[in-house]
Design a protein around this nucleic acid. Structure first.
Length: 634
RNA sequence: GCCAAUGUAGCUCAGCUGGCAGAGCAGCGGUUUCGUAAACCGCAGGUCAAGGGUUCGAGUCCCUUCAUUGGCUCCA
């Protein structure tokens, strides 16, 4: 028997009963559960009879396991509701996910938004009935017969794919039964607050060759307040959406004329240029050089690199002078040609060569999303040409750069290690050595990471950095890819101390990932209120009457000379109106000049972060701003 | 690419079962010289995404295409 407590599974030992397990393995939980049950508090406990024995599932409300269980139960309630309304709906799967749950259905007629409202009403009824969720198990053939009787072909397929020794369990609530490993809440009435959020198409088992099913997404919480808090957070996230802010702040936009090809307006270009110059400075300080390779190169090169075989469907190409030319989808072949222009000594390695490279990839039309997923973007790429002995140190060096940059922007990030994919090239030995190299570096750094089996690039394993945005979505930004294949393919060499030619190893890496995407993430992260060093307009000088115009112009000149991005608002408008506009533009500093300030040669300073700072002289203002810019303060 | 929804002025949106294309903000022209989130008056602004069809008549109904949004798949 398996007992799940607080998301941890415990296997029953001989002579142990369920209560012993709770008491022995999770004494704190047992105590808490008992105490909470006695006063009717925040514990759900469930004891369900199966074949004379018991399974016991204890989960606390504030625990992830508890929320997952609640949401999973909510998905069962939803499935029951859908079946009541559409008896012919075939059930696929309905798990809990990060912020809620979903259930996939195979139905003749696609769902409509109105139907969602009906389902919600039906769910309310089922929750009111407060049916118990009862678990039972069946031997494999009986389970299959049972699901066949119920006309549930997807469930039959699932059972058939379960391992030989798997326990096949079902959960019943009222007249609804579903194949399910559990655990669940004891009864439907425990689902106190839920909302169905959207309808989507989804392939059966996530494979685009399979039938497309109807997926209904929802979320559930233990109380109405938490649900409302979640909905409010989603609302806030919408306000921060970089596509909305990009237009409102006049930074960037996409037009129908260029799907996936973003335009950057003058203010958006400030962001780009600041990010790029910081990048260049950082790389100069860390022993990198920079190169630039053409965005278009002939097909032959892409055949040689393997991209033609492995990435053809994403490559834009055109025929000129009876030759096929490709817009580069990646920078590496250009970098490799740059390396191969001469012979290299081991003394010159590591060669760390950066490139802000523009790449084009023909992404599926449905995959595009603002700046986060585009068809043309700039990778802050670098190729490190190194000896095998340098792998660990160089990976560590790159990681430190990543950590420095992400921390500077105040990002949390997660690290993933992706291993050899199916459609890959190179020998087993190469892949093993490469994967071990990356692992060794991560382990030495003591960085926590998860392994993503089979998700590497076709030429090598990789480490990915996932940053978290305002809605809690994660975006892959930095990547470190270890490549022993390209050096082989392109017969790259360096001359070792023995005077012989040796094969270098390549590290492909990015930090921002894509400048475009990074700007999108920053926009949402800061809700458009960028730190001073990045702000397109760093300060705004505004006058109360035109008697202050000359004083304003004098201040403007001083700030401009110091390289501050300053704008003036001399319009014949009330000061309240000017401030309102500057506020909405999220300008970090406002300098108000009226008769008083014009007389004393000062300006009333208002900071976005700190509010009113009183009157300051031009010198004080300049010192404050240049200090804040140079430290890149958040 | 697939499933669904959406597309009306620069932006946000109204326009009901088919019957003269509308509002607020932004813009422009005036008046107002004002002390920390919206002064007042006026003017202009549209091939209703594009193309086709039904109809006496289409922003509205139907079809096709394009784009966008939410997902699936893929990925920086």
């Amino acid at each position: 028997m398996l007992i799940t407590m607080n998301g941890r599974a415990h296997q029953q030992q001989d002579g142990e009963n369920a209560l012993d397990i709770v008491r022995n393995r999770e004494p704190e939980l047992a105590k808490a559960a008992l105490a909470a049950r006695l006063d009717g508090g925040d514990v759900i406990s469930l004891v369900t009879p199966i074949y004379g024995d018991h399974t016991l599932e204890i989960l606390t409300f504030d625990d992830k396991g508890g929320r997952d269980t609640l949401r999973h139960t909510a998905s069962h309630v939803m499935a029951q509701a859908v079946q009541n309304l559409r008896p012919n709906a075939k059930l696929a799967i309905g798990p809990s996910v990060d912020n809620g749950f979903y259930y996939d259905f195979d139905v003749e007629e696609p769902f409509t938004p109105d139907f969602l409202l009906e389902v919600e009403k039906e769910m309310q009824k089922l929750i009111k009935k407060n049916d118990r969720l009862e678990r039972f198990e069946l031997p494999r053939h009986e389970a299959i017969n049972f699901m066949e009787e119920k006309c549930q072909p997807y469930k039959v397929e699932l059972i058939n794919d379960l391992p030989e020794d798997a326990i096949i369990s079902f959960y019943r609530q009222g007249d609804f039964v579903d194949l399910c490993a559990g655990p669940h809440l004891p009864s439907t009435g425990k689902v106190k607050a839920f909302k169905l959020t959207s309808i989507a198409g989804a392939y059966w088992r996530g494979n685009e060759k399979n039938k497309m099913l109807q997926r209904v997404y929802g979320t559930a919480f233990f109380d109405k307040e938490s649900l409302q808090a979640y909905l409010d957070r989603m609302e806030e996230a919408k306000k921060r959406d970089h596509r909305k802010l990009g237009r409102e702040l006049d930074l960037f936009a996409l037009f129908d004329e260029g799907p996936g090809f973003p335009f950057f307006f003058p203010k958006g270009m400030v962001l780009r240029n600041e990010l790029e110059s910081y990048w260049r400075q950082l790389h100069r300080e860390n022993g990198y050089v920079e190169c630039r390779t053409p965005i278009m190169l002939n097909q032959h090169l892409w055949e040689e690199s393997g991209h033609w075989d492995h990435y053809k469907e994403n490559i834009y190409s055109t025929t000129i002078d009876e030759q096929v030319y490709c817009l580069k989808p990646m920078n590496c072949p250009g970098g490799i040609l740059t390396y191969k222009r001469k012979s290299w000594s081991y003394r010159e390695l590591p060669l760390r060569m950066g490139e802000l490279g523009i790449v084009h990839r023909h992404e599926l039309s449905g995959a595009m999303h603002g700046l986060m997923r585009v068809r043309c973007f700039t990778q802050d790429d670098a190729h490190l040409f190194i000896t095998p002995e340098m792998i660990k140190d160089e990976v560590i060096g790159v990681h430190k750069l990543d950590d420095l940059v992400y921390s500077m922007f105040g990002f949390k990030y997660r690290v993933e290690l992706s291993t050899r994919p199916e459609n890959s090239m190179g020998t087993d030995e190469m892949w093993e050595a490469a994967t071990a190299g990356l692992k060794g570096a991560l382990d030495e750094l003591g960085v926590a990471y998860t392994i993503n089996e089979g998700d590497g690039a076709f030429y090598g394993p990789k480490i990915d950095y996932h940053l978290e945005d305002s809605i809690g979505r994660t975006w892959q930004c930095g990547t470190i890819q270890l490549d022993m294949n390209m050096p082989e393919r392109f017969d790259m060499t360096y001359v070792g101390p023995d005077g012989e030619k040796h094969r270098p190893v390549m590290l492909h890496r990015t930090i921002y990932g894509s400048i475009e995407r990074f700007i999108g993430i920053l926009t949402e992260h800061f809700a458009g209120a960028f730190p001073l060093w990045l702000s397109p307009v760093q300060a705004k000088i505004m006058t109360i009457t035109d008697r202050a115009d000359n004083a304003a112009k004098a201040l403007e000149q001083k700030l401009l000379k110091a390289g501050i991005r300053v704008e003036m608002d001399l319009r014949n408008e009330k000061i309240g109106f000017k401030i309102r506009e500057a506020q909405m533009e999220k300008v970090p500093y406002m300098f108000v000049i009226g008769d008083k300030e014009a007389e004393s040669g000062q300006a009333a300073v208002r900071s976005r972060k700190e509010g009113d700072l009183g009157s300051m002289s031009a010198e004080d203002i300049l010192n404050r701003l240049t200090e804040e810019i140079s430290t890149k303060a958040l």
